[in-house]
Design a protein around this nucleic acid. Structure first.
Lengths: 250, 250
DNA sequence: TTAACTCTGTGCGTCAGCGCACATATAGCT
DNA sequence: AGCTATATGTGCGCTGACGCACAGAGTTAA
């Protein structure tokens, strides 16, 4: 029923370490130490960076991809715990000391990232300089997002959650176009695919999104924010507070 | 309908810093630096340690109380994000760098705790010694618990969640007796009080718990674990892995 | 063109949890 | 002993989400 509007895409790939906000926030001194060890890697949709329990070999700094931290239950159903884009990094467990997590890291939106060998990361981290403090702040932002996910799962409708999810994704992309099937969104939200179909249909009727076979275009972001629960705004505000380095100020 | 069985209580108060597992895990050197600054404080039921957004003045190391990290929504409903007892500390935001969180810290089970002035905590933390690494590991355990809360909220029934919640509380107490109304549990789980009543009634019928007016006694812990979802076991296993110091090994 | 496949739409019946209303039961107080 | 607070039990209608089944619609490949 929903007609697809202009589903053009494009968006230049982001192939500079500085496109990741955490890397960008580091002083030149640290950058010079670290950047030579960064390795640019492709991040195709669906790629699994690590499984629950895996010892992490690398940390990943996304530039233009999005990674979901997904918990997969014993019976196979799943739920997204948090999402990471160019504002963050994947693999906090490495410097937290646990080396592994109970979640899976999986690419939700294709693009690329810079990866760094775990030991290098730990070496720099253990110099106890700015990297440590930056990582800790980022970790707190991540914690906030997880907490809010828990709240949202408890109290809000699929439509509200979909709005939140779209906004979180949108913030991590360069344009308003998402490559993502309703089936995948359902896996992320931990709900039925049909539920997403219905919610998406309603959002389309309200003139907020267009979509068609694995492509979603947000046409009215403001309205999307209105329809979302408070959860998006809370996470956004807290992330901005903890990591004001967002706006490339150096 | 449910007859109350033997609802005796008692359990000696725990008035030694070492009763908190994190404090206990520290070397004597660090303990000697830190312990003089610890202040024993009463933790009555319902006491609010901090509100969302408050700048934290102290970190709290529970000895025999339980503190809930609770998110309170704009409309007043709430959801517990995680729970802290003698295995942990309240106030990670202080050393993570954010100074405040979006959640509220509230005493869920009365007892006492040692508190430490934020600055003292940060001073020791910034010596970049064992305290730092211990705190990071604990933070990861906390993250795991939050993530699992999100999953549980999404997929499991009130009864399963109640089982998980009882087990988490039980692990942080010295006996199998809880002082807690169904109303309060409902606030923690973010569900209706009636829902808790029904679930508790079923658990009683199954011979797992006895309860009466604000008192709950677990009579069959093994069965409780069987009835719980996987979430409890996952958090337990991961916490034990990250903080094996549980069993006073020093 | 046809066929196979994937993605989306829709219509069931079912059920857990909700909101509300109100009936008990128990503890604590005077 | 009686009163009042608080805690718990129960019923009822409602709704959002579920599981299932299948129908269309678009895309790809032969």
């Amino acid at each position: 029923m929903p007609q697809s509007a202009s589903l053009q895409h494009a968006a230049e790939p982001q192939h500079q370490p500085e496109h990741n906000h955490l890397l960008n926030a580091l002083s030149e001194e640290v950058q010079q130490r670290l950047f030579p060890h960064l390795e640019l890697v492709e991040m195709p949709l669906g790629k699994v960076l690590y499984e629950s329990g895996d010892v992490l070999r690398y940390v990943y700094f996304p530039t233009d991809c999005i990674v979901s931290l997904l918990y997969v239950m014993e019976n196979g159903s799943s739920a997204e715990i948090s999402v990471v884009g160019f504002e963050g990094l994947v693999g906090v467990a490495l410097f937290m000391g646990g080396e592994s997590t109970t979640s899976r890291g999986i690419v939700q939106s294709a693009g690329s990232a810079y990866r760094l060998l775990g030991q290098r990361m730990k070496d720099e981290f253990n110099r106890h300089g700015e990297l440590l403090h930056l990582m800790l702040r980022y970790s707190q932002a991540l914690i906030t997002q997880m907490a809010q996910t828990a709240v949202c799962n408890r109290h809000h409708s699929i439509e509200q959650q979909l709005c939140r999810w779209l906004l979180l994704s949108l913030d991590r992309l360069k344009n308003n176009h998402l490559v993502m099937t309703q089936e995948l969104i359902a896996n992320m939200l931990g709900v039925r695919r049909e539920g997403v179909t219905e919610a998406a249909g309603r959002l389309h009727k309200k003139g907020v999104i267009d979509y068609s076979r694995g492509h979603i275009v947000i046409t009215n972001r403001q309205k999307l924010e209105q329809l979302s629960c408070e959860c998006y705004a809370v996470v956004k505000a807290e992330t901005d507070r903890l990591l004001p380095l967002y706006t490339k100020t150096r």
